[in-house]
Amino acid sequence: MRMRDTFIKPMHREGVRFVAIFAVVTIGLFLVSELLGWIGVGLTVWCYYFFRDPVRVPPARGGLVLSPADGIVSLIEQAVPPKELGMPETPLTRVSVFMNVFNCHVNRSPVAGEVVSIAYRPGKFFNASLDKASADNERNSLRIRMEDGRELAVVQIAGLVARRIVCFVKLQERLQAGDRFGLIRFGSRLDVYLPEGVTPLVSIGQTMVAGETVIADLISTDHIR
């Protein structure tokens, strides 16, 4: 890896127009004041950084549930998946990953499988770190069926300042673990509903890397929480 690649990450196409807007505003600020112009430069760099889309390398072994987002594990609890997905109303272990405005916001599939349901639901914009955000906030939910027939739900949840959930995938599309499936701007949360009987291997407060950090093992029976 070149030194440049350590600091300069590729940007997702969703961010191009936002960076362009920030850059145009920055030019205008320089016409008003040099100080304001340099503040604009800083905000433009932040915008580019927000939409970064670094290369991620999933674990080689299958049968793992990977984090769908960069951020911090904010909640681990039993909850029923969103009704609009049509899954059984049985409480499953839900692992929530909270993303702040400095995290990479490209979302990745936790497992390999087929997208059998996509459901968008409008809602409110509470702080995404709060428990009630799962039920009340705007969200977009995916139901993924794995080769062994088990299903997993992953839910994009808008946050306090997030006003746009983007989903890249379509019904019946097949995903590999770690594939990009969406993006949220600007600050939000991802919930993963693990299959029944699967125990998470992460703890509240743990830092997650999308497409790389293992949340759970679908194969091993030697689970450690």
Rank of each mutant, 00 (worst) to 15 (best):
Met1Tyr: 15
Arg4Trp: 13
Arg4Gly: 12
Ile8Asp: 11
Lys9Ile: 04
Met11Gln: 01
Arg13Asp: 14
Glu14Cys: 05
Gly15Asn: 00
Val19Trp: 10
Val19Glu: 04
Ala20Gly: 11
Phe22Met: 15
Ala23Asp: 03
Thr26Lys: 07
Ile27Leu: 11
Val32Glu: 11
Glu34Gln: 15
Leu35Ala: 15
Gly42Leu: 02
Leu43Arg: 07
Cys47Ala: 15
Cys47Leu: 13
Tyr49Lys: 14
Tyr49Met: 13
Arg52Leu: 01
Arg52Tyr: 04
Asp53Ile: 10
Pro54Ser: 06
Val55Gly: 10
Pro58Ile: 06
Gly62Leu: 08
Leu64Ser: 06
Pro68Phe: 07
Ala69Ile: 12
Val73Cys: 06
Ser74Arg: 14
Ile76Met: 09
Gln78Val: 05
Ala79Ser: 10
Ala79Cys: 06
Pro81Ala: 09
Lys83Val: 15
Pro88His: 05
Arg94Gly: 00
Val101Phe: 13
Val101Met: 14
Asn103Thr: 03
Val106Lys: 00
Asn107Ala: 06
Asn107Gly: 08
Asn107Met: 10
Val111Met: 00
Val111Ile: 08
Glu114Arg: 14
Glu114Asp: 11
Glu114Cys: 07
Glu114Gln: 13
Ser117Arg: 05
Ile118Cys: 09
Ala119Trp: 00
Gly123Met: 04
Leu130Tyr: 08
Ala135Asp: 10
Leu142Lys: 02
Arg143Ser: 04
Arg143Asn: 01
Gly149Gln: 09
Gly149Asp: 06
Leu152Cys: 02
Ala153Trp: 08
Gln156Ile: 03
Ile157Gln: 00
Ala158Lys: 00
Gly159Thr: 05
Ala162Trp: 08
Val166Met: 14
Lys170Thr: 14
Leu171Glu: 10
Ala177Phe: 07
Gly178Asn: 00
Gly178Thr: 14
Gly182Ser: 09
Phe186Val: 12
Val192Lys: 00
Val198Arg: 05
Thr199Met: 12
Pro200Leu: 10
Pro200Asp: 08
Leu201Thr: 12
Val202Asn: 14
Ser203Leu: 13
Gly205Ala: 12
Gln206Thr: 15
Thr213Asn: 02
Leu218Asn: 01
Ile219Pro: 03
Asp222Lys: 12
Arg225Asp: 14
